[in-house]
C-alpha cells in the first residue's frame, strides 16, 4: 500500500512516486535516500509524513534529541575554552566548536570577551554525521546581525523541539501577545534552548509558566487520542 502525505509512518517504510522539479527533491528531517532503489525515500524516524508543494518532504515526529543541521540558528552554552576555539553545548550528541574569530570585528589580537558559561546565539556553519558541528556568529558579510554573545542577565531554559517549532511559526500569536503584556527579549534556538530576559525576575517565572502550559497544550491532543 503506497504511503500518503499525512500518514503515520515508521522507520523502514518506503515512500514511492516522489514529486520533483527537474529531478530535484528537497528532503527534511526523518527521511533519507534508499540505497537499493535510489528513486525512493526511506523513513528513518516515526512520525507524520509531510509534503510541501512543489518538492519538499519531511517527517514530523516527537523527537527529543536535537540533530544539528546546516543553517540552523541555535542557542548554546560555552563549556570549554581552548586556544582559539570554544566548545559549545547545543544539546546535540556532540559539543559544537565555535571559533573565536567567527565573531564580528574579531581579529587574532582582539578576541571577543567570552567566558565559560556564557550563552551564545549562533548559526550552524556545517553539520555532518561524522564531524563535530561548527558554529559561527557572523553572516557571510562578516556582520553579526542578531547573532552573538547573549547578555549575562537572562535566564536559560530548555523546551521540547515540537514547542520550539510551533513557537517559531509565524502563525503562532503566543510570543507577540505575551509581548503586549510584558516587555521581554528572547533567543529561541531551533535546538530547544531558550534564553529569556525580562525587567523583573517575576516576569521570567511568568514566561516559564506560559511555556510549561503551552507544552502541555501541545500534548493534549495526544492524551485525548489515548483516552479514546
Amino acid at each position: 500500500m503506497p504511503l500518503k502525505v499525512g500518514d503515520f509512518v515508521l522507520p523502514g517504510e518506503l515512500i514511492e512516486d516522489i514529486k520533483s522539479i527537474k529531478g530535484l527533491t528537497i528532503v527534511g528531517p526523518g527521511l533519507r535516500q534508499n540505497e537499493e532503489k535510489p528513486n525512493i525515500l526511506c523513513v528513518t524516524q516515526p512520525g507524520t509524513l509531510r509534503f510541501k508543494a512543489p518538492n519538499m518532504y519531511w517527517i514530523e515526529g516527537k523527537r527529543k534529541r536535537y540533530i544539528p543541521k546546516k543553517g540552523d540558528l541555535v542557542v548554546g552554552i560555552v563549556v570549554k575554552k581552548s586556544g582559539d576555539t570554544l566548545k559549545v553545548d547545543i544539546g546535540a550528541a556532540e559539543f559544537a566548536s565555535l571559533s573565536m574569530l567567527a565573531f564580528e570585528g574579531a581579529t587574532k589580537k582582539q578576541k571577543p570577551d567570552v567566558q565559560v558559561g556564557d550563552c551564545v546565539y549562533a548559526k550552524l556553519l556545517n553539520a555532518h554525521r561524522e564531524m563535530e558541528p561548527e558554529l559561527v556568529c557572523i553572516d557571510s558579510y562578516y556582520k553579526a546581525g542578531k547573532l552573538g554573545i547573549l547578555p549575562n542577565q537572562g535566564f536559560l531554559l530548555t523546551i521540547s523541539l515540537n514547542l520550539t517549532q510551533s513557537l517559531l511559526d509565524i502563525e503562532n500569536p503566543l510570543l507577540r501577545s505575551i509581548g503586549k503584556k510584558i516587555p521581554y527579549e528572547m533567543a529561541l534556538g531551533v535546538n530547544g534552548k531558550v534564553w529569556i530576559n525580562c525587567k523583573k525576575s517575576k516576569e521570567v517565572i511568568y514566561l516559564m509558566k506560559i511555556f510549561d502550559v503551552a507544552e502541555r497544550e501541545l500534548h493534549k491532543d495526544a492524551v485525548t487520542v489515548c483516552n479514546d
Binding site: 528513486n39 510541501k52 542578531k146 517559531l168
Partner: peptide
Amino acid sequence: NLVFISTSIVNCKNLIDGRLSFG
C-alpha cells in the same frame, strides 16, 4: 535520476528567526 537535497526543519516549516524582542 532524482537528486535529494537534505534541509533543516526551518526551511520545511518556514520558521522565523528566534532572536526576538517585544515591548
